[in-house]
Structures are given as C-alpha cells and as structure tokens.
Design a protein around this nucleic acid. Structure first.
Lengths: 340, 340
DNA sequence: CTGAAAGCGCTTACAG
DNA sequence: CTGAAAGCGCTTACAG
C-alpha cells in the first residue's frame, strides 16, 4: 500500500540505463566518469521521482556511515549546546550527520553509548566526557575509531584534542583579583581526574606560589555542579572564613558558591568576590553578573569537528592538541578587597 | 590490518551453528524459538568475541532503523535541551537512538533535514519547529512517516501533539497582574503563524475583553528572540507609554523588553512589570528574577517520545493532543502597579 | 528447534 | 563511458 521507497533502480528504469550508472552519476566522486548529458538525465529523473539514497545500504556496503558521534555529560548543562552546535554546523556542511549521547559522567553509560554508536558504524567520535585516564580512549584506539577530545583531554600522549589554555585563564583570573587587592584567595577545585579540574587547580597553586601568596586555600568537588559548589564552599568556610575571593572551577560551581554564601549572610562581591569558568549563557544578566573566564565553545566544537573530519577522510597528520585562548570577562561578582 | 568487525557468522562459527540461528538467539523476539541451551551458548560466544550488531545491515533488511529524528529551531535556545533530553531518555530506554537537526526556523532547512533523516530510515519524527500550516506535516503524511508535534502544533486536525494549555497560562498571568492592580497591560506577541504565538495572543485578547479591560495594546514580533522583543517594545513605547505591565510571548522576548526598557531609563518592575513564558534556565537568578509561565519541558519531550514509540510500533489509536498544564512562577519582575 | 536461501539497496572491481 | 555481477551483514519465509 505504502508508496514504496524510490530506489536507484527506479531511477535507472526511468532513464533506461543500468542502476550502476545511476549510482555513479549521483556520486560527486564518480560522476566525472559519466557523460555530462547522462548525469543531467539522471539528476532530472531522480528529482522527478523524489529519490533520496538509502544511507543504510550505502553504509553497509562502504562500511562508513557519514555519521559522527558526540559524547557529552548532559545536554542540559549549558556548556554543551554551543559546542554541539559548532560540531553540527561543521559536520553537516560536509554531508555528515551527528548524534549525541549523554553519559551523565558515568563510565558505564559512556561505554554503552560507544557500543551503540559503533553498531551504527559512526565514522568518528568527539568526546567531551573523558577523564584523564578514561578507558574509552583505549577502546577507540583498539577499534581504530578516529576520535577527537574536546574541552577535557587525557594524560596520555598522541591524541587529538581541542582544549583551553587553562593556565592562561587562571593567571588572568588571579591577576585580576590581585590587582583588586585580594590577598587570600580560595579555589573550589573540580574533579582532579578531569583535565580541566586538574589543570585549573594546578595553575592556581603554581601561580600563587610564584607570586609568593598563600596557595593552599583549596577545597575539592566530585563534580562540576551547582550542588557540589554549594557544599564545597560551606566546607571551606567552616574551616576558614578569612579569604576575600574565590576562584570556582566552573560557572555552575560559582553559582553554588554564591547560593551558599547567601544562606550564610555573606554577600558577593561585598564580602567575597567570586569568579567562574566557561561563560555559560545569561551570566551577564545575573545578580550579581558573574565575572568568568570565557571559553570559545562554539568554535571549539567546530574545530574538533574539522579535525575529526580530516582524520575520517584519511588526511595523514600528527596528533594535535589545539589550545584555545580563553578571555576574562569582568562583571560584577568581583570587586576591590575590603571595599565595603 | 584492522581487527575486522565481528559478524554474526563469526559467532556462528565459534558455536558451530548456522548464522541464522545466531540471529534468532540474539533477537529477543525470536529467541524463544531457540533452545535455552543454544541461546546461552550463543550469548557466551557473542560476549567473548565482543560482537555487536551492524545496525545498518539490520536497517536495510527490516526497513526500520530504531532511530528517531528531532527537529528543533536551535539547540542553543535554552527551551530545547530539556525537551530533547526527555526525548532521548525515553527513546534510549526502548533501544532507540535519536538525532536532532537545527532548522533555524527556516522551512528550507527543515525540508533538507527531513530528507536526510528519511535517507537514514528514521522510524519516526518529533517536530518542535512546525508553523501552523507547515508543509512538513503533509510531507510526513505522504511518506507515511509517523510523527509527533511538540511545543507547537498545526491548525489541521488529526495530528499527534504534546503542547501546553496556553489559555490557562495566559489567564494565570493576567489574573496575577490584575490582582496587582494593573489596568493597562500590553502584549509582545510571537509570530502568528506559530500556534504558541497565536494562542497566547488570542488568549490575551479574549481574557482582557472578558474582563472588560483594554485588550489592544499588542505589538507583534517576527521571531521569539531577545532582539525581536527589544525592537517590539520600543515600537510599542513609541506610540504608548501609559501601560504598567507587559506579557511577553517568551522568556527571551521578556529579556529583550527589559533590555530596551533599561536603555530608556525604565525600571522593571518599578515602572513596568514584565512576565515571560517557558521558564528557561537561570531565570530565578536574574536581575530582576523573571516571573514567567513554566512549561514542563522535559516531560513534554518524554511524552512526545512515548506517543511516537507507540505509533512506530503500530499500536493503533486515534491521534491525541496532549495539553500540558503550565504553572505561573511568580518572581521579582512583577509588582503592584504604581507602587513606586 | 535449526538450516539453507533469498534479498534489503547500495557500491565498485572487472570488463568491454 | 556504461554494464553485469558480486557482496556488505543482517532477517525471515520456507523446509524439515
């Protein structure tokens, strides 16, 4: 009953040629072997019949799917939509489809997602979920699946990654706070098994040490969430409430800090200045508008997709770590120490 | 060179049976025709070899892909991530993969996306981008592609949709403003060729008329964006600045209104109360915290996926329009008229 | 309960 | 430049 799907054979029948000719005429890579007139006729017939290729068939035959996978922790975390959009726009412009899976930062879910994507014969994978020693990297290498890390990277060498110059961001952050007269600066650190959590914490301690300032005011979190930020700063304040500024490992962390401070009757920035990281949406509209390190999320996604597409199409080149430059966005959550 | 992918034939060879037996043993729907012992052996062998099915092959044979498509305007619009996550969680729990495409509210891009998804043999489509007379609905019907509308619906009957009781939301909004003593209330209306824009504007006018209040203070936008909200309220203020409250068609619209007011030296809520719609992320943290109509985004996605999965699996039932109940979230962008 | 065969719609090496 | 054939890895109607 259904209008059966149009295949290459239907187009061939209409033109009066063999279906392999239709296949060649429709494929940009082979159409130059077909007479221009034939190409024209095939195009017209395909158009008339409303033909579009069955990608499953092409995938089965070619063992490539023109699909890219993306692994993120959670789509609802505002860090990721711009990254994904950058990936999608870049990939789709080259004829690739992308699908994404949420891992909730759970290695089991990450594993399952990889298997499902492998089953769908993805041509490559972009990973925004890697821990520093994540097993998924070995799995990809073992399966010879091209992959690019984004945002977070791993400890081992020889991978492709698009990340942020975290040291630069943290130094800019600390320079800003120091110029504002802050002497005792705290850090709510992210998970140390993530490169971002680790590098930010390391840059924080190294730079303060370099400046001969106190560098031990650090409290660690399990995850980059509002709740964890909330809990961590409460722990910190329970043991030391003489600092005047806090560098949060992420924007969500910073929001959690501000919430906790509010509960304790501490004002931001009057009592404590707070700085986030990432520059997620709407920060400028918040109360207080959050000072943060802005990372080029859309562009990071686009670059990662570009590198992956190169890999997928066999352009040989050495693994590359692209370190994007972040930018300090000064807003109202930071102010002069002791100004109030 | 490569570890060639494991197929059903490799598993069959290891067990010493025909590959069709392996296929049956691995498929939950047919495994009851296979002896339990054989099922066990096959499972073990598959596990040992690290087998996972080639979905392209299954798709080609069965003409179904266990993939669902989702059409949204833009992933970076905070309305959509929760909807998509609701769809993903529901679909993945049933073994389906989902991929999404951004249309930027452009009918051409919507068309292209549909073709690509059709080429990938999606089993069904969730559409969050429909205009009231969108041609995509006819295309889906013509191709016999099961689909469910979400958030926006179309004028024609007989479709499946998960939408919001807009009239209820607008009435709650107006009741709130009226109780605050507002007499002249304006509306920044969304595109009238979208059901949400149309229904909100209609509910606004009908309810004020019912209450014997002025209902003509309306300015229309082309899109639900910050920029359009900004422009629209400026146009409105240019011809009438005696209103004390404005109902914006969306949260982004409301933010644009507040921006424009700020530029003109008008305060929210002191001079004009503003109410949004949708309750996107972080509104409670804004300055001022935005009063809005909250819609159950995640749940809408989950329900849409549930209905679509029913359709896909041939459960016969009449088309259903699910109207979800919204909830007014009163925050700080609304206050008593003339209180300042 | 299991096997053997056909076929889904493409692509591509081989001919001519 | 075009055709004929084989095959990608599954599923499933038909046998037995």
């Amino acid at each position: 009953m259904a209008n059966r799907k149009i295949t290459i054979r239907d187009v061939a029948a209409l033109v009066g040629v063999h279906h392999s000719t239709v296949s060649r005429a429709l494929n940009p890579k082979t159409k130059d072997r077909i007479s221009p007139e034939m190409v024209r006729k095939v195009d017209k017939a395909a158009e008339k019949l409303g033909y579009f290729p069955n990608i499953a068939a092409a995938t089965l035959k070619q063992n490539r799917s023109f699909a890219l996978g993306v692994l993120i922790p959670d789509l609802m975390n505002p860090v990721f939509p711009p990254i994904i959009r950058g990936i999608q726009d870049t990939a789709e412009a080259k004829g690739y489809t992308v699908f994404t899976a949420n891992t909730d930062d759970d290695e089991k879910k990450e594993q399952d997602a990889l298997n499902i994507m492998s089953g769908r014969s993805i041509d490559g994978l972009i990973i925004a979920t890697a821990w520093r020693n994540d097993a998924i990297v070995d799995k990809c290498i073992e399966r010879e699946l091209p992959f690019v890390l984004v945002n977070r990277t791993v400890d081992r060498e020889g991978v492709n990654a698009v990340i942020v110059d975290e040291e630069f961001g943290i130094r800019a952050t600390l320079d800003h706070l120091i110029s504002l007269g802050h002497k005792r600066i705290a850090h709510i650190a992210g998970p140390q098994h993530s490169s971002t959590g680790y590098e930010r914490a390391k840059a924080f301690e190294d730079y303060l040490t370099l400046k001969n300032m106190e560098s031990g005011l650090v409290e660690h979190m399990e995850k980059f969430t509002v709740e964890e930020g909330h809990r961590a700063i409460k722990r910190l304040l329970a043991r030391d409430n003489q600092f005047t500024a806090v560098v949060a490992a992420s924007d969500l962390t910073a929001l959690g800090c501000i919430d906790a401070m509010q509960e304790l009757g501490l004002l931001c920035p009057e009592n404590i200045s707070v700085i986030g990281n990432n520059d997620i949406i709407f920060l400028a509209r918040m109360n207080p508008a959050l000072t943060t390190v802005s990372i080029p999320k859309y562009d990071m996604g686009a670059q990662a997709a570009r590198i992956l597409l190169g890999l997928v199409n066999g352009e040989p080149r050495d693994p590359v770590i692209l370190r994007m430059q972040p930018r300090l966005m000064i807003r109202n959550s930071t102010s002069r120490a002791g100004a109030f």
